[in-house]
């Protein structure tokens, strides 16, 4: 086994070169490069964690904003509803008032018209008595040849009208 046979001849050289190589790896790479690489990894992990936290915060903000918007929307809807209800009530009240006014006006007109009508009828009736009395005087004269005074005819007609 060369490892045993040659041990005394090579161990110093082996140890010397091994020490050189191990020292280079330990100090140059293990203490020099590895911490830098590790720091890069740590920085990256920290950045990922920070980004995640920021994203989480942004999401919470968006949620809150959405909640606010929904609340504002609800409030606006309620306000609009109130306004329309008030307008509707006012319109209904106005309509009732106008209707009452119009009713009153119509009633007034109706009353005057009725009054006029009544007067006209009375006038017409009065004229009718006179015309009827004249006609009755003429008819009596023509039919019987008797002459009837105007006053008599008039009173007869009036009696008939009163019975009518």
């Amino acid at each position: 086994m060369p490892q045993l046979n040659q041990l005394l001849l090579v161990y110093q050289s082996q140890w010397f070169w091994l020490a050189v190589v191990l020292a280079a790896i330990y100090f140059g790479i293990g203490r020099g490069m590895v911490p830098k690489i590790e720091r890069v990894v740590e920085d990256r992990n920290a950045k990922i964690a920070a980004d995640l936290v920021a994203a989480e915060r942004a999401r919470a903000g968006a949620d809150a904003a959405e909640e606010r918007a929904r609340a504002a929307d609800l409030a606006a809807r309620a306000a609009a509803h109130e306004v329309t209800a008030a307008a509707k009530a006012k319109a209904a009240k106005d309509a009732v008032a106008r209707l009452a006014k119009a009713d009153a006006a119509i009633a007034g007109k109706l009353a005057t018209a009725e009054a006029a009508l009544g007067k006209a009828r009375k006038d017409a009736l009065a004229n009718l008595e006179a015309v009827a009395a004249e006609a009755a005087q003429d008819i009596v004269t023509k039919v019987s040849g008797a002459s009837v005074t105007a006053a008599k005819a008039k009173s007869a007609v009036k009696a008939v009208f009163a019975n009518a």
Binding site: M1, P2, Q3, Q6, L8, L9, V10, Y11, Q12, S13, Q14, W15, F16, W17, L18, V20, V21
Partner: peptide, 25 residues
């Protein structure tokens, strides 16, 4: 597994001799 001095000389048990083992290290 034989270690040889790359200079071609004999192994002499000194620390600084450059061998195939040292080369591969």
């Amino acid at each position: 597994f034989q270690i040889d001095a790359l200079s071609g000389g004999a192994l002499d048990g000194t620390p600084f001799i450059f061998t195939n083992s040292a080369l591969w290290m």
